[in-house]
């Protein structure tokens, strides 16, 4: 791959998916795109890039974007966010929404489905506290291919052994030949939609919790800020945002504040915060006015 080919690919991925490819990622490009070169009978990476430059090959374009943006996913990946979910987010929301008894969760980079299903398992494990509640989990991803897999809920023996306790495997999965399938009840808990975070998602409505882990790392600062701004609009004042362990909102947006002591967990800054400031300033002015009258 020549430097100009790499530049073209960088630009192509940036405009089409928001992915920012640094110059040290040549190996990643090769390992992810060579299989496509072979399967599409183009043989070399250069030929794939030339075909992209020529344009008009939608299938190839989609394949390349999906191959470059797909992440490996585990059940209960990183563990901590799921502890936050059970110990912090659920108790807070169960209390604040006790009349409406409705909970909407969005996994914005659902990949092959492990994250939404892990949340589904958490909810089922807490079912005793959730009698009469309506919960909805939405999983979205840029890639149709991973969503198709997510929808089937079929995982290899390797996949079900990464992060999933054996008791949970027995409880929520059925053996299907060499594969394990999450049971129908769990599959019915999750809805799937193809979505590019660069596009508008206001039509999805409002959520109580958004998981958006290890996605923003692919975007440049301006894009991160823009997406976080739109995520804030998809959350109510007490809504939660979960980012990857190495990600933060600090320096990017004022719409969220870190939840103290909970790594990767952020909460919308309640409007009250911003309203309090002018209100107290006003109060101050009134006092000054009053004293000047005296």
């Amino acid at each position: 791959m020549t430097p100009s080919e790499f530049d073209f690919l960088k630009n192509f991925l940036k405009t089409r998916s928001g992915l920012v490819l640094s110059n040290d990622k040549q190996y990643l490009v090769e390992s992810r795109l060579l299989p496509i070169a072979r399967s599409s009978k183009l043989e070399t990476l250069s030929a794939v890039i030339q075909a992209l430059q020529k344009g008009g090959n939608r299938t190839l374009e989609t394949e390349v974007i999906e191959a470059m943006t797909t992440n490996e996913s585990f059940f209960f990946r990183d563990k901590t966010p799921f502890d936050h979910f059970k110990d912090t987010m659920l108790p807070a929301l169960l209390a604040s929404r006790s009349t409406r008894k409705q909970l909407k969760i969005w996994c914005a980079a659902a990949s092959t489905g492990q994250e939404p299903y892990s949340l589904g398992i958490c909810l089922k494990e807490d079912a005793a506290k959730m009698g009469g509640w309506r919960t909805r989990i939405l999983g979205t991803d840029l890639s149709q291919e991973v969503l198709e897999k997510a929808k089937t809920g079929l995982y290899s023996q390797f996949e079900v052994q990464r992060g999933l306790p054996i008791q949970m495997l027995l409880k929520y999965f059925e053996q299907k030949g060499d594969m394990w399938q999450i049971n129908a009840g769990m599959r019915a808990m999750v809805e799937w939609k193809k979505l590019n975070l660069l596009d508008s998602f206001s039509h999805l409505g409002e959520f109580d919790i958004v998981f958006c882990r290890n996605v923003l790392i692919y975007f440049d600062q301006a894009t991160k800020t823009e997406i976080l701004g739109r995520l804030a609009k998809a959350l109510p004042e007490d809504g939660f945002l979960v980012l990857g362990a190495a990600e933060t909102v600090v320096g990017l947006t004022d719409a969220f504040k870190p939840v103290p002591g909970k790594r990767g967990l952020f909460q919308r800054k309640p409007q009250a915060d911003t309203k309090t400031a002018p209100a107290s300033a006003l109060g101050g002015r009134v006092a000054v006015g009053a004293s000047s009258i005296r």
């Binding site: 563990k79 390797f158 052994q161 990464r162 992060g163 306790p165």
Partner: peptide
């Protein structure tokens, strides 16, 4: 390795 680590962590 990953599976052993995941299970031992579990």
């Amino acid at each position: 390795r990953e599976i052993v680590e995941a299970k031992f962590q579990e």
